[in-house]
């Protein structure tokens, strides 16, 4: 399955700005830490199809972590 919303999790600082703007509320934080010591944001595989590719998350991300695609 190709992902609609992809996170460069190594660069995420878990600021949650993406979570705040996602209209579908499908972005979560991982329980594991990335190498920076943050819980990176991600969209679970099962929720990828709920993404409407609005890219609000990407436009709010201060770390250019998120890329968004449309099927």
């Amino acid at each position: 399955m190709e992902k609609r919303v992809r996170f460069n999790e190594d660069h995420c600082k878990s600021c949650e700005l993406c979570i705040g703007v996602c209209p579908k509320k499908i972005i979560r934080l991982r329980t594991e830490l990335n190498r920076l010591g943050y819980h990176p944001a991600f969209v679970p595989d099962e929720d990828q199809e709920k993404c409407i590719s609005c890219a609000l998350c990407a436009r709010m991300c201060p770390d250019a972590v998120i890329e968004v695609f449309r099927p």
Binding site: K13, A58, A64, E67, V68, R70
Partner: peptide, 23 residues
């Protein structure tokens, strides 16, 4: 898949020193 938003190529591919959530 068609790209809607991709990382700008004029940004270097590094982690910034800015705090989490810094605009």
């Amino acid at each position: 898949m068609n790209p809607v938003y991709t990382r700008p190529k004029s940004l270097t591919n590094v982690v910034t020193h800015y705090c989490p959530g810094c605009t």
